[in-house]
């Protein structure tokens, strides 16, 4: 099936198998490998991207469902070479160790801050419910998001 998607500002048009997951389209066809696959039950959030501005798990969508949509991945978050405040926050507050969950965490947090620019600690933790990090114990992820929230 033919799909047209705008990914990180660039228009793409591809023929995809109807069963292709959006995450595989991004990783395999567009070679945007910053979006990760951490599970097969929509439980980890490593694959989180923005679809028309909303955080979604790209492993739960088919590529064809993104037809006509705008997608932002971690690769598209920095603007004009400037890191997004969340990217900066994760660096400043040591919000990552192995980095595998990081793109998903950042994309989820970006959606949170869009709707709730000054979240409480509890609200941050609640918003991260669908994202698993095995390395950091979340302590510094929470601080990273607080850092960004201050900056934005």
């Amino acid at each position: 099936m033919k799909i047209n998607v705008k990914v990180n500002g660039t228009a793409h048009s591809h023929d995809v198998e109807p069963r292709t997951l959006l995450v595989h389209y991004l990783r395999d066809t567009l070679r945007l490998t910053g979006t990760h696959v951490g599970c097969d039950t929509s439980g980890c959030g490593a694959c989180t991207i923005h679809l028309d501005g909303k955080a979604v798990k790209s492993c739960t969508l088919l590529a064809v469902q993104a037809d006509g949509c705008e997608v932002t991945t971690i690769e598209g978050l920095a603007t004009n070479g400037n890191l997004h405040p969340l990217q900066e926050g994760f660096h400043q507050e040591h919000g990552l160790q192995c980095g595998f969950c990081t793109p998903g965490m950042i994309m989820t947090a970006a959606d949170l801050l869009k709707h709730n620019p000054k979240p409480s600690e509890a609200e941050i933790r609640h918003a991260l419910e669908g994202n698993i990090c095995r390395c950091t114990g979340y302590h510094n992820i929470v601080k990273s998001i607080q850092y960004a929230s201050e900056k934005m």
Partner: peptide, 8 residues
Amino acid sequence: DKRFITGK
């Protein structure tokens, strides 16, 4: 950090 936070 940079490569991890930029998806690279």
